[in-house]
């Protein structure tokens, strides 16, 4: 009988030079690796997608496997803003303020049809997608998306975090992009 070898969920080591007792790589890659596996999400849950997020954080799906078990309910310590649910126009300035209070580098995950485009709420009182007020990194479709999809979205964020260069947030392009949203 063959005994299955246990499969550890470990990160791949970055490219580098390896030898007896040492491993050399660029600092950017090491920082990317560390950041990627310790994202602190801020859940901004306003409706049913938030319920799916509860399942995502629960034992069955368990976002902790991706190093994101520590939710930050203060925007100042959060890395990832997860917007889950319908954002009414009256909620818009609140969401924007939460985003502005987050420290760089920061990422935004838009979960579900409502956050991404307004969804079924094509009405005068609902914001037709959060990308009208804040920049979004990854969109997760679904109404609501299953926990697997939310995890997939977080993994896409992880890819972005891993590959982000140190200089990106200081770049002219990034500042111009923020200025488009009227964020200093």
């Amino acid at each position: 009988m063959e005994i299955a070898t246990p499969k550890y969920n470990m990160s791949e080591k970055p490219e580098g030079i390896e030898g007896a007792g040492f491993f050399a790589t660029s600092l950017e890659k090491v920082v990317g690796l560390a950041r990627k596996n310790s994202i602190w999400p801020l859940p901004f849950a306003t409706s049913c997608c938030g319920i799916e997020f509860m399942a995502t954080m629960g034992a069955h799906y368990d976002l902790a496997r991706f190093g994101s078990e520590r939710l930050s309910f203060s925007p100042r310590q959060a890395d990832l803003l997860m917007v889950m649910g319908t954002i009414a126009k009256k909620m818009g300035p609140v969401l924007r303020q939460v985003y502005e209070q987050m420290a760089e580098p920061r990422w935004v995950l838009s979960v579900g049809a409502c956050a991404s485009s307004g969804g079924i709420f094509d009405t005068y009182s609902v914001l037709q997608g959060i990308d009208r007020i804040i920049p979004v990194d990854v969109y997760v479709p679904g109404c609501p998306p299953r926990p697997e999809q939310i995890i997939d979205g977080v993994m896409k964020i992880q890819e972005l975090v891993e590959k982000e260069s140190f200089r990106r947030r200081d770049s002219k392009e990034y500042k111009a992009m923020l200025n488009q949203y009227g964020i200093e």
């Binding site: 126009k89 307004g118 094509d122 009405t123 005068y124 009182s125 609902v126 037709q128």
Partner: peptide, 21 residues
């Protein structure tokens, strides 16, 4: 509704849908 709103949305002459979509 938001204070900036200039219409009275339940009056029939105003459309239900968000016109910027």
């Amino acid at each position: 509704n938001v204070d900036e709103m200039i219409i009275f949305p339940m009056r029939k002459e105003y459309p239900l849908e968000d016109q910027t979509r």
